[in-house]
């Protein structure tokens, strides 16, 4: 499989988790890829965790952009509250 197709699958998984309300809470960089931990709090207050290993360089790059957007959004919301 071309690395592009592999990346598209990783990107779709990341987008799907973000669309479901998950946030990136931890990234562990390993020689075999990045292990990414996603968390969300469900309606009944339960902490739900999903873990994903990103193998492609494009996937790890995309996760970086998603994470920066997440941090900027958090920072903006904190600013607007304060």
């Amino acid at each position: 499989m071309s690395s592009w197709h592999e990346y598209m699958k990783e990107k779709a998984t990341i987008n799907d988790l973000i669309a479901k309300g998950y946030r990136v809470t931890k990234v562990t960089e390993l020689l075999d890829g990045d292990d990414v931990r996603f968390e969300r709090v469900s309606g009944d207050g339960t902490l739900e965790i999903e873990e994903l290993r990103l193998l492609t360089a494009d996937g790890r790059k995309y996760l970086g952009s998603v994470l920066i957007a997440q941090l900027r959004a958090s920072s903006a919301s904190v600013s607007s509250v304060s």
Binding site: V24, T25, K26, V27, T28, E29, L30, K61, Y62, G64, S65, V66, L67, I68, A69, L71
Partner: peptide
């Protein structure tokens, strides 16, 4: 581009902000 500009240094900073390890 697929996303806003992002440098390696910005990525490293973002990863450390959420907690990263290796």
């Amino acid at each position: 581009p697929e996303a806003q500009p992002m440098t390696w240094n910005e990525r490293v900073k973002a990863l450390s902000a959420v907690g990263s390890g290796n």
